[in-house]
Every structure is written in structure tokens, then in C-alpha cells.
Design a protein around this nucleic acid. Structure first.
Lengths: 133, 133
DNA sequence: ATAGGTGCAAACAGTTTGCATGTAT
DNA sequence: ATACATGCAAACTGTTTGCACCTAT
């Protein structure tokens, strides 16, 4: 077991990983973060991505988005309440603003609703668009 | 790649696996199915469970229930459309009948909604009850 | 008799960990 | 100088596949 480090350092790897997640408009998987961050740090290792993303989740900078049985994705914390849409073809996950005011009415009497998630799935605009060429 | 078999056979393994899932009152994970089914077929292999459950999902007998980042679970299909409530204290998952008619309006223009899932979480009646300990 | 099924072990894929080396402080 | 971070590879865990043997039809 390795205790948490006493201090954090600024490294190219961490800067790249943060930048990728900050500029993303949708939650990213570890693989997506790795691929994007390697554009600025080519030799970036996947273990570093796991460790860095894990640390960012622990410090509250990132939120983990668990969708179905798929690999967890990560997005910047503190955004407005929103839900997600998963494309069954390209498997990307998109954010959808807004919510349904009466979700908690689904719960039968006696249940205390504290949180909820709504996940839509189908085809994203890119995959639904008729392709030509 | 192995093509789907032309016909299905009745075997002790499949009977056991089906029986376990039919008598369950909650969605079961692969491990839970294996453990239960081994009571009637001790040498049952996990690969057979994966293959059989997978086949049952494909033929529509079972539905895969994916909740959060947890291992997928399987339940008998054909029940009325419903969603789930997960108790954060006892971790049980309950079914909630009904739905919200306007869920798919959450999706921005251009997205083709084919399916959706709603997961509420909080405390179930047992865990919300004032009696403690 | 034979297509199909099973169990085992090996192969895979995603994630975590150990360690020697590299680097921010 | 030194504690922390990185990259690589090995270790793990959960799932899938190849294959020789078995069995329902």
C-alpha cells in the first residue's frame, strides 16, 4: 500500500491530461484521454492516465460518469445538472442539458429519492446522418 | 467466428441456469448464477454460464440490467417496462413500474433516441424507516 | 451418427502495481 | 538532494475462445 503523496507536482503529463478534460464537451474514457493527451506528450503511459485521473477524481476536480457496463468516463465537476446520451454506433457519450422535473415521482411511496440518472441511447447526429461520398 | 447453432439442446446445465434465473426475485450477476447453478450441476464451468446467459439474452429470454459501474446482471424478460431504484445503504435494486412519457425530449435535435434508462437512488423503505440498529 | 454442448485452460482486455529511472521542487 | 512522478512490464480480474471429449437428438 502506498500512502498519498504529501504534495503535488506540476508535470507535462498532468497538464496535458487536465487540458484534455477541460476542453472536452463530453465525458471521456481513459482511452480517449490517453489518445488526446499523447498529442502533446507522445510517450505518455496509460498507467499515468489512470493515476492522474484517479487523483483528480479524489480531489473533486473530476466526476466519474458510470454508464451501463461500460468503462467509466470522466468529466469536469461542478457543471449544471445534466444527463447523458450514448451512441450505440460510435459509443461516444454526450451531455444533455436539462432534466425532467417529475423523475422522483417514479419512486413508490416510502422510497427516499436522493439522486437520479437518466441515460438515453440511440444514434448521435454524426452516426444518424446519411453519409455521402 | 463461430456461427450460431441451428438448433438448441436441452442439457442439465441450461436447465439449471434457467431455473436459477426464473426463481430469482432480483437480477443476478454471472457469479451469482454460477454459484447457484452449481448446487445442481457441481462441475458447471463459468464459460458455460457466460455462453448460456449470452444466448438467453440473444434469444430474448433474459434482459441485461446494467447499473452504474457494477457488474451486469440478468433478469427474465417480458416484464412491463420499468426502471430501477438502488438503495445506497443496503445496495438492493428495486423495480419501479411506470415511466416518464417525455424522456426522449431531453435529447437535442439530431439525436435519434432508441432507448432509455432511469435510475433513482437514495433510501429504500426499509433503510429509510426510523428504527435503527 | 452427428451437430451441438461442456469443461478446462489459454487467450484477451481493461486496470492496477512494482520498480528503476527521471524530474520538479 | 530528495520526495514525488513516470514509463514499462508484470500482475490481476473478469470475459472470451480453442479444442478434445461428451451427449441430446
Amino acid at each position: 500500500m502506498k500512502g498519498a503523496p504529501v504534495q503535488r507536482r506540476r508535470t507535462r503529463q498532468r497538464a496535458a491530461i487536465r487540458a484534455v478534460l477541460e476542453s472536452a464537451r463530453r465525458p471521456l474514457s481513459i482511452g480517449e484521454v490517453l489518445e488526446s493527451a499523447r498529442r502533446s506528450v507522445p510517450r505518455l503511459g496509460i498507467a499515468t492516465v489512470y493515476r492522474t485521473v484517479g487523483a483528480l477524481v479524489e480531489e473533486g476536480f473530476l466526476s466519474q460518469v458510470e454508464i451501463g457496463g461500460e468503462a467509466p468516463r470522466y468529466e469536469i465537476s461542478g457543471r449544471a445538472h445534466h444527463h447523458h446520451f450514448r451512441c450505440r454506433r460510435c459509443h461516444r457519450v454526450f451531455e444533455m442539458d436539462g432534466c425532467l422535473p417529475d423523475v422522483r415521482r417514479l419512486a413508490p411511496a416510502g422510497f427516499v429519492v436522493e439522486d437520479h440518472e437518466i441515460l438515453l441511447s440511440g444514434l448521435c447526429p454524426d452516426c444518424a446522418a446519411p453519409r455521402r461520398g
